[in-house]
């Protein structure tokens, strides 16, 4: 019994960690008023760069950091389109979702002699209790370090958004950029910074997949997690803590669908796999209801236009 529960909890956190990074990236970007549909693309770039750098350098931490950097650089494209060119952010986000996986697979074939999979990294990111544990419960609670990092990032983002002047500025830029502008807040710079951070976090999320959950980059390493993260942003009503909880729910439902005593039951595996998504819709109808985006989310700011 205790083993089962601990397994469920362990898997929940394992599955949700990459999602949490992606979702927090979405929160920070959308809070500043830039819709970010490109999380999937940014996560894929991070997943590839993390695995590739982790493999060639032999150090997973270097891979993780460079993945964040790559995600951030990639997100700059979105910032240029959304902020400088005042482009339709939906379209530019979708574009990143095409370019990101395309670029990742293109580079993967160049780096790994034509294969769409990278070589496995020599060492994964560490676990919190170190190596293998003899006790099953301890083994299940031996989280990846990324689980802890994801929690810390959520706390930090909550603190910054709601307890510091920078957070107030970010939120005001997302709600009413013109008012923020008259108070001397640089709207464009704030949005650039937030999109950049969003990309860095999404990059981390991708790397959390390929350096902690699995050990290499594959074409399906990131397949829809970015969109689930996007859903979690809306589900969590654009708050870090809400998005975090939504990601845990997805992670839990996914853990449930691979839970041994359920997986060996008469229920078809496809029905179990559907579970997280059905559960989400039910929760939405029963408890969450209308979600309201930051007021100026997705609308380019034009100085002097009312």
């Amino acid at each position: 019994m205790l083993n089962d529960i601990s397994l469920l909890i362990g898997n929940t956190f394992m599955y949700s960690a990459p999602l949490i990074f992606g979702a927090l990236g979405g929160v920070i970007s959308e809070r500043s008023g830039v819709v970010n549909l490109g999380i999937e693309g940014m996560m894929t770039v991070g997943a590839f760069v993390g695995a590739a750098v982790g493999f060639f350098s032999g150090n997973a931490w270097v891979g993780f950091l460079v993945a964040g950097l790559a995600g951030g650089l990639f997100a700059l494209l979105h910032a240029v389109a959304a902020v400088t060119f005042k482009a339709d952010q939906t379209i530019s986000g979708i574009a990143l979702n095409l370019i990101g996986p395309g670029l990742a697979l293109f580079l993967c074939r160049l780096c790994f002699s034509g294969a769409t999979m990278s070589q496995p990294v020599p060492h994964k990111l560490p676990k919190i209790l170190g190596g293998a544990q003899s006790n099953i419960v301890a083994q299940n609670f031996n989280f990846d370090i990324t689980v802890i990092l994801a929690f810390l990032v959520m706390m930090a983002m909550w603190f910054i958004l709601y307890r510091t002047k920078w957070g107030l500025r970010i939120r005001s830029v997302g709600e009413h950029p013109a008012a923020a502008d008259t108070l001397g807040i640089n709207v464009n710079r704030t949005r650039y910074t937030c999109v950049l951070v969003s990309g860095i976090l999404a990059g981390f999320g991708g790397a959390a997949m390929t350096l902690a959950v699995i050990q290499q980059f594959t074409p399906t390493a990131i397949s829809g997690q970015g969109f689930i993260a996007l859903a979690a942003v809306i589900f969590g009503k654009w708050t870090p803590q809400g998005a975090y909880a939504a990601c845990l729910l997805f992670g839990f439902a996914q853990a449930l669908s691979v839970f041994p005593s359920l997986a060996h039951s008469a229920i078809p595996s496809e029905v179990l796999a559907m579970l997280p998504y059905i559960l989400t819709i039910v929760v939405l109808i029963l408890f969450v209801g209308r979600s309201v985006a930051p007021k100026e989310d997705g609308i380019p700011y034009e100085k002097g236009v009312r």
Partner: peptide, 8 residues
């Protein structure tokens, strides 16, 4: 994949 990059 160059095509995906191009389309994107």
């Amino acid at each position: 994949e160059i095509i995906n990059i191009m389309i994107g």
